[in-house]
Design a protein around this nucleic acid. Structure first.
Length: 884
RNA sequence: GCGCGCUUAGCUCAGCUGGUUAGAGCGACUCGUUUACACCGAGUAGGUCGGGGGUUCGAAUCCCUCAGCGCGCACCA
């Protein structure tokens, strides 16, 4: 008879079992396109794929990671047991701001200043940090039993992914979906970078509302210091009180002398609030900026990127905004410019990373034009190409897509993907003689055209190297108000109607317009010339086209390289820029110092990790992925953007189902926080109670989209369950192995061949077998429907309170030495069947105990698969012929 | 302001498309246990399913309404 320890000691098994699985390669899916599978498959053969939400390299594992790892591992293991080729692709995220802040802090503790260190050295330090901590978190994910394919592990700054990022940027740029411009942005003076709208968090703070005597108006403001940047007063168009004043200019007495404002009527003004008149500070308020844009009101910036008053604010220059506010209020009171002051609760904007107050300031940044992307992304969910669980988040998703604003993607940081744009300052050049305005357009094959292409479609796509085209077009964007753009290819001069791009709002049309009006065709080896003229100046580019290769997107031939022989720019900025995958040829080009928003690379994750933009086997086979499992808190940050980018770059939704889990909270449903001291550390709990217990505690009782409370008591409960599994199995194994197995007391080759004699069944046998069948069916269905909690609970209840409490007790009689030999044998067969099949079903939830027990079970019943992880799921949903 | 969620036993929560006597875990109480497991077993108590109204043969479940709590988005002069 076997000897098995009395209690389950997880520490003795977990790490060893994990190593055995990993070494055996069970986490790596078989890529077998078009071939018949090498194993018994219960599915349609489609691979099951999850891209792991890449944890930041900044920290160590917490309960949130444990939750996603558990849920994703359950799905992965379930589908593996079902026989699907299963890929769970892990990785980590460089997490721009977060990592830079943490490393900066740690360096400062060592007395090292980031700025003295310099960019290159600093980035080296961050990489050192990454080497140290990036692997910590993946090691800890293994501890959770995550059966992901480590051979495919990725990091967002890997060469392949960086290449994907550059490709995406350049492609969007060429499509006119990325632009650079001066906008009022959310600026964090503490992190010293712009952040996106959804990276801003609002919180209430007690403050004051100042009623100012403002020329003929009395108006309220929370930020009197911005008065120095005021250029207008806005009122509601229907407001009778101010009708007469609209359009007129007024002189306002200010602390730095008189200044002039214009009165405009705008619907954004709420006539009910305050006096119905608003002072407009276009440079430091989003609403004011928009009002100013609509009424052509000038903008005056008075706050700089350090959150301090600028030189144009006289004696207040250099003060922080709060200091300036106090000083200005004091001065205004002295001048009798303040009517009265109210108490007022402000909803102030703060940075989601550092908590600092956000200053809206005008800044030149890169933006993604999101609306065209959002429309497709919205449609994908509307058409059910993507299903969101729980469904109610679809509405939230739609609302976001409907109200989306352009996405500011440049960050003034060092750690991240540096923007693939290069700048060059150019000397002023003497004006060129006026160009001949020839309106003739080039058509493919047309007489006089130097273009040799025979079919017009090929011709149309064979513009010039997209990278150079973008570089050229970038200048159109930069200077506005071009009168005309001429393209001269050596023989024919082509006029391009510039009306289409005088306005930045029409940027999407740029590429199209160019193609339509004839900036197309290439001349291998011929020097061409592009000339731009604007109200600010002109630019001339001499270009030589060389060679011909297939375009990587369309497969059509394009110019392989375009040498810019010379280019000249003369405009107000005097700067030209180049957008491309690699630095441009020639001297003096400097790359844009900014990096991209972390979420830009994250948005590419489901396909960049599989090799995109290269056409790899992995991309072909595993993309689109199956499930995106993540927290509802990053629905906008991440999920929405993956959908937008997935559709844009691959033409496919990046996943079929989005499963949103909730936030892990403490047993009283409070947020886990260090200050409350209620945080649970999975790395303490795992050695204490076992990974399986932690996993079960996270799954059972949690509903998608709903926060999940968890306390140590709950985990203890599932530790007890682990032990119950161990002991019920121990009983089974010990009893079944009584007698001589070699002579085949229970016989049979595999579990399905266990010939259970229906004639000999006791009522207890019949009941358990029937219940067992139900559980198999229910659990399969629940897992297919993403109802993990219910599935786990069902299995828990069945195993403990039906199998162990009822059936094992009943089996004791049936196994008694004085019982009929045939009954004993039959009972043993039933026990083996029930136990082995239940272990398989429990395995996705509790991989370690179940595998540990399986290995024991295999010793007395060697026909079982070598490892539980690759066993066969005991219920086939397609076989609806389940006889009761 | 717009939207969403929650309110079920002392605590934390399940309860899918309405259908036996509303469930679990923890906690409480009683009893038991040399015999797979005290990280155990058998059992008990505990709920007018937030209030009100409606639909229905039948409502924790669907609809309306009110209240409390929480969250998201927008505004925030």
């Amino acid at each position: 008879m076997k000897v098995i320890p009395k209690a389950y000691e997880p520490e003795q098994f977990e790490q060893d079992l994990y190593r055995q699985w990993e070494d055996a390669g069970y986490f790596r899916p078989e890529v077998n396109m078009g071939k018949s599978p090498s194993y018994d498959r219960q599915t349609d053969g489609k691979p099951f794929v999850i891209s792991m939400p890449p944890p930041n390299i900044t920290g160590k594992l917490h309960m949130g990671h444990a939750l996603f790892a558990t849920l994703e591992d359950i799905m992965t293991r379930y589908h593996r047991l079902m026989g699907s080729p299963t890929l769970w692709l892990p990785g980590t995220d460089h997490a721009g701001i977060a990592t830079q802040t943490v490393v900066d802090k740690s360096l400062r503790k060592q007395g090292i200043n980031k700025n003295e260190l310099g960019r290159e050295k600093f980035i080296e330090k961050v990489w050192e940090w990454k080497e140290q901590y990036g692997s910590t978190i993946t090691r800890q994910l293994r501890r959770l039993g995550s059966s992901c394919d480590w051979s495919r592990e990725r990091f967002t700054l890997d060469e392949g992914l960086s290449h994907a990022v550059r490709t995406a940027f350049v492609d969007l740029y060429n499509k006119g979906l990325i632009y650079r411009g001066v906008r009022v942005v959310n600026w964090c003076p503490r992190c010293h970078t712009a952040i996106a709208d959804d990276e801003v968090e609002y919180r209430f703070e007690k403050g004051k509302l100042y009623w100012l005597k403002y020329g003929p108006f009395i108006l309220a403001t929370a930020r009197p210091e911005t008065k120095l940047g005021d250029t207008a007063v806005a009122v509601h168009p229907g407001d009778q009180r101010y009708l007469e004043m609209v359009g007129k200019k007024y002189t306002i007495q200010g602390v730095l002398g008189d200044f002039e404002v214009v009165v405009v009527a705008d619907n954004a003004v709420d006539p009910e609030f305050g006096s119905g008149a608003v002072k407009v500070t276009p440079a430091h308020s989003f609403t004011d900026y928009e009002i100013a844009q609509r009424h052509n009101v000038p903008m005056k910036q008075i706050i700089n990127e350090n959150g301090r008053m600028m030189d144009n604010t006289g004696k207040y220059a250099g003060m922080k905004t709060i200091e300036a506010r106090e000083a200005i209020v004091a001065d205004m009171e002295a001048m009798g410019l303040i009517d009265h002051i109210d108490e007022y609760d402000h909803n102030i904007a703060t940075c989601y990373r550092c908590g600092g107050v956000i200053e809206p300031i005008p800044s030149k940044q890169w933006f993604v034009k999101t609306r065209p992307l959002a429309e497709k992304a919205k449609k994908a969910v509307e058409d059910h190409d993507i299903k969101i669980i729980p469904e109610r988040f679809e509405k939230v998703y739609f609302d976001w897509m409907d109200n989306i604003r352009d996405w500011c993607i440049s960050r003034q940081l060092w750690w991240g993907h540096q923007i693939p744009v290069w700048y060059k300052n150019l000397p002023q050049l003497p004006e060129l003689p006026e160009l001949t305005r020839n309106k003739k357009q080039v058509e493919a094959g047309q007489e006089g055209s130097p273009v040799s292409a025979k079919n017009s479609e090929e011709f149309r796509f064979s513009i010039i190297d997209p990278e150079d085209l973008s570089w050229i077009l970038s200048n159109i964007q930069d200077t506005h108000n071009y009168e005309y753009v001429d393209f001269f290819d050596g023989q024919i001069r082509t006029r391009i109607d510039t009306e289409s791009f005088t306005c930045t709002e029409k940027q999407t049309d740029r590429t199209g317009v160019v193609a339509k009006t004839g900036l197309s065709g290439y001349i291998d080896g011929v020097k061409s010339c592009l000339e731009l003229r604007s109200t600010n100046g002109f630019a001339k580019y001499e270009i030589e086209f060389k060679g011909q290769v297939p375009d990587r997107f369309t497969g059509r031939p394009v110019i392989a390289s375009t040498e810019i022989l010379n280019h000249q720019v003369d405009n107000t900025s005097g700067v030209s820029y180049y957008v491309g995958m690699e630095p441009p040829r020639g001297e003096g080009w400097v790359q844009d110092p900014d990096v991209l928003d972390t979420w830009f690379s994250s948005a590419l994750w489901p396909f960049s990790t599989l090799g995109w933009p290269e056409k790899t086997t992995d991309l072909d086979y595993f993309y689109p992925t199956t499930v995106m499992e993540t927290g509802y808190d990053i629905l906008f940050f991440w999920v929405a953007r993956m959908v937008m980018f997935g559709l844009e770059f691959t033409g496919k939704s990046p996943f079929e189902t989005v499963y949103l889990h909730g936030l892990v909270r403490d047993e009283h449903n409070r947020k886990m926080s260090k200050s409350l001291g209620n945080s649970l550390d999975p790395l303490d709990l795992i050695p204490k109670y076992g990974t399986d217990a932690v996993r079960m505690a996270l799954v059972v009782g949690s509903t998608p989209g709903q926060d999940i409370p968890i306390g140590e008591g709950k985990i203890k409960g599932y530790r007890n369950f682990s032990n119950k599994i161990w002991n019920a199995s121990r009983f089974t194994i010990l009893r079944v192995s009584e007698g001589d197995l070699k002579t085949g007391e229970i016989g049979g080759e595999s579990v399905s061949d266990l010939a259970i004699d229906q004639e000999l069944l006791s009522p207890a046998d019949q009941q358990i077998l029937s219940r067992h069948q139900e559980v198999k069916r229910d659990v399969s269905r629940m897992l297919n429907e993403f109802r993990f909690s219910l599935a786990g609970e069902t299995l828990y209840d069945y195993f403990w309170h039906t199998f162990a409490d009822i059936y094992i007790e009943a089996s004791k009689n049936q196994l008694a030495p004085d019982a009929d030999q045939r009954i004993r044998e039959n009972t043993k067969k039933i026990l083996i069947k029930l136990l082995s099949e239940t272990l398989i079903m429990l395995h996705p939830f509790m991989p370690f105990v179940t595998e540990a027990v399986w290995q024991e079970l295999r010793e007395i019943f060697p026909s079982l698969p070598k490892y539980l992880i690759i066993a066969k799921w005991p219920f086939d949903a397609d076989k609806k012929t389940t006889r009761s």
